[in-house]
Amino acid sequence: MLASEQPESRGRSHFILKKVLGSLLTLVFVLVFNFVLFRIVQSDPIGSLFRGRNVPAAKIAELRTAFGLDESLWVQFWAYVRQTFQLNFGISYQSRQPVWNEIVSAIPATVALVGISAVLSAVIGTIGGVIAAWRRNTWKDHAITSGTMVFYSMPDFWLGMILLVGFAVVLGWFPVGGMTDAGSTATGLALLLDRLHHIFLPALTLTLAYLGEYALVTRSSLLDVMGEDYLTVAKAKGLRDVVVRNRHAVPNALLPVVTLTAINFGFVLSGAIAVEAVFSWPGLGKATADAIRGPDLPMLQGLFLLFSAAVIFFNLLADVAYAWLDPRVERA
């Protein structure tokens, strides 16, 4: 038994090691790219900060020194790398607080909102896709396919605006924004309920916006699998239709969906930017939207780095999950 297992696990750990190294290389690329983007493409950050506004030259020079922009490029790059690893992303132009502190304080709100929506959209979308494929060309299939396509084709923040006007402004069922009622001193369960009340509409928006992709990918993946011989074999064995579907078809069809899920988890962190802005949800997305208005470049730079790191991490997770689920991976 060991004889057949050992080369397999060696193949897998080799595969995962390769993916980890690839991710680190990508991270280095992002660091360099980030530096180039903010220091070279934009040769005069302070100048463009005040572009079109009447600011005295002395003030500009003072800011340049304050932000360390007088040094040579190499010195700046070295300082940048060192600071990045110390989680020092500079001082926000807007709040004058360290960028890292600003980011850290916004993370929980985004993780809660995006986490809930990502899980819900993945689960509901996948189930919808399975139903659509298994009952293809029936009214269920048409309803699911066209419904998800419509949600998929609209700007997510516009969907949020409609839901907000409908359910918060007109009907008054939900608050118009924020994470808690203003001036609320609730604690414990009351606080939790208050937060759930606030998170409902933005979470619904993101769930509806993202489930289309899961449904479409699951559907087409399952349709590909449905022609496979091993399903005929399973049917011939005397399995019920549902068992054939759940035990043999779905596990094979879900392989690409798992990858999509993990990758999306990385992307939704940054994908909620406009929706968070609509609902004044105090997370990373709103921080980004606020930083754009400045523009608050150190803040944008820090956020961009964080978003990229999240995507790289979840991509790696996707590869690992795939290796775990698909025994064939060692050959790839």
């Binding site: 011989d229 091993y230 074999v233 064995k237 005397g238």
Partner: peptide, 20 residues
Amino acid sequence: VRWTTGAIVFQGALHALNPV
């Protein structure tokens, strides 16, 4: 009746076995 009375040996070199 399937598989207990009559069973099929499919052409197996390709896809008759579930890969996972």
